[in-house]
Design a protein around this nucleic acid. Sequence first.
DNA 1: CTGAAAGCGCTAACAT
DNA 2: ATGTTAGCGCTTTCAG
Lengths: 355, 355
Amino acid sequence: MSHTPIPSDLDSPIPLRRTRRGSGRTTLADVARVAGVSAQTVSRVLNSPETVPVATLEHVRAAIAQVRYVPNRLAGGLASGRSKLVAALVPAIASPVFQETIQALTQSLASKGYQLMLGESGYDDADEIQLLENLISRGPDGIVLTRVVQSELARQRLASSGIPVVETWDLTDTPVDMLIGFSHEDVGSAVADILLDRGCQAPALISGDDPRARRRRTGFVNRLIARGCIGRESDLPVVEISAPAHFGDGRRAFVALMDKGCHVDGLHCSTDALALGALIEARERNIAVPDQLAVVGFGDQVTSAYTSPALTTVRIDGRRMGQLAAQLILERAEGKPVSARIQNVGFEVVQRASA
Amino acid sequence: MSHTPIPSDLDSPIPLRRTRRGSGRTTLADVARVAGVSAQTVSRVLNSPETVPVATLEHVRAAIAQVRYVPNRLAGGLASGRSKLVAALVPAIASPVFQETIQALTQSLASKGYQLMLGESGYDDADEIQLLENLISRGPDGIVLTRVVQSELARQRLASSGIPVVETWDLTDTPVDMLIGFSHEDVGSAVADILLDRGCQAPALISGDDPRARRRRTGFVNRLIARGCIGRESDLPVVEISAPAHFGDGRRAFVALMDKGCHVDGLHCSTDALALGALIEARERNIAVPDQLAVVGFGDQVTSAYTSPALTTVRIDGRRMGQLAAQLILERAEGKPVSARIQNVGFEVVQRASA
DNA sequence: CTGAAAGCGCTAACAT
DNA sequence: ATGTTAGCGCTTTCAG
């Protein structure tokens, strides 16, 4: 109850209750003491230098350097409500598909002193919520998802957290908050057009089983039907591969397709990795690409331009999505008006030798 | 000055100084109120459930669920000194080389409720320190570096931070703290042996320019000299590529090598990506691999097993390094004895068709 | 322009 | 087994 009962000259022998030992690390207060100013002034030097006269600025900065002060942003974040942390949730970290996005995010954020926290959700939604809660509990200033949120519970948690959310790599009519993506259905249609335009009559599909690959498949099938190439969905030979799909899967899938005895003159693979596998297997079987078989991938991996024949594919600008997502979150975090909550970045058909 | 001057029954009209508005989010105290217990008990339910009787446990958990409480780990971390955050610093996020390590780290940490913060250092050390300070300021419980720390200043900062540090993907006699890696020199020697053992007489090298690639080069050259294949370093035709090296660079480098008019019957490329490029270009030029030219890569990317001919290469267990790094940090964080501060995980030569 | 006080939401230390 | 109290290190608010 008593505040330092009586200011005596003697060292108080009365045990001053208990005390928690500080971490021992240098704090703002230490800097303030050395510089002969208040902690507040040091804080201002760090966070709003424009409000401090140059003389003070330099003096305090010298003190900071002298004591090798490293701020504690956990404390800063707690006090200010801004952590300068951004969370990103990716289905698979090792998938080349999302790397440009992750890299662009990291770089765009780092340039403003923000840091990325990375979480891996996997392709099923089992612990999506747990992961999200763990991320939210760290008070990020924004959350970037490289897909549309699946479960209703997760959507609610995100919405009620009040944290800016950007969903990417997809479109939806009901985004949680902000959205930067492209239409997977349209990609499917565009690929169908490539094959039909070059005269293919017997198309086939090797597809992943994640929701987005499924939607590309839908777009592909619908366009084939619309243009009279096939009568109904079941007319299209399809091999489905469970995500994450690799090179070897494409090779095996192509074998499976051939074993079915299908005649195929146009093949769409739902990732470039699968397409490369198909390409290799076709060569082994002396099937000429593109003359006997046209092949179209998706994703435009770095390697795809250098295969022989070079792979015709669909290029997605993952880097741009990462940059835009970072921009939206930074704008929100700094209270600026947000450029555009919903953006369709589209895609680009890359015509190469394989189709 | 005054503490609630006179406890009166009336609502004090005296303005109670100022007050900061809480974030509005549900706090421990809210849960405590609903459950009719103290905040401390709720904290114990969350952090050391084994010390709480089952009845209380269930009661409090019900309250937590009811008010949809999400803990604030910024506050928790500040109070306890443990953030359950681990920082990782990678030269290039998009490089396939480090993906397995990042993924393994993320997964191993997530299983214990820890979260990964990712930083990209680039291949030069310009802002290594700034990045490190930014990461350190977030109070991580551990820092994983996918290389040996370069600058002395960075080493000091790391050491004085008191945070457990694991350097990976390399060996050194003077680790900052813990170390999990393999010898790049030994990799170079091993590759030289592969080529020499199959009778190559005119080896060449396409190499990256980062410090580790340079050390593989040294090991390669020294073994060639030791076995009498070349007389001195300058006898070896070398094309150096600046990191990050891609597929296309390998192709161009091989062109450069041929343009020099070198006769080459054995080629080592310091990454698989470079080797794949060389393989493609060799095919274009009707150079038979491995009969006229043996090719050995480094890294064993997923695609390397499926090229034609399949690539002989050196496999590094990035996943294992990530798991071990996570394990060491978790052990330290939980005050357990640490398994082994320094571990050489070695590497494996993967003999395939190209050599 | 600078400083003092209060408190962000939580856990450690002590007390019961 | 549970509660009380005092901070963790910082920023916000208000007062000069």
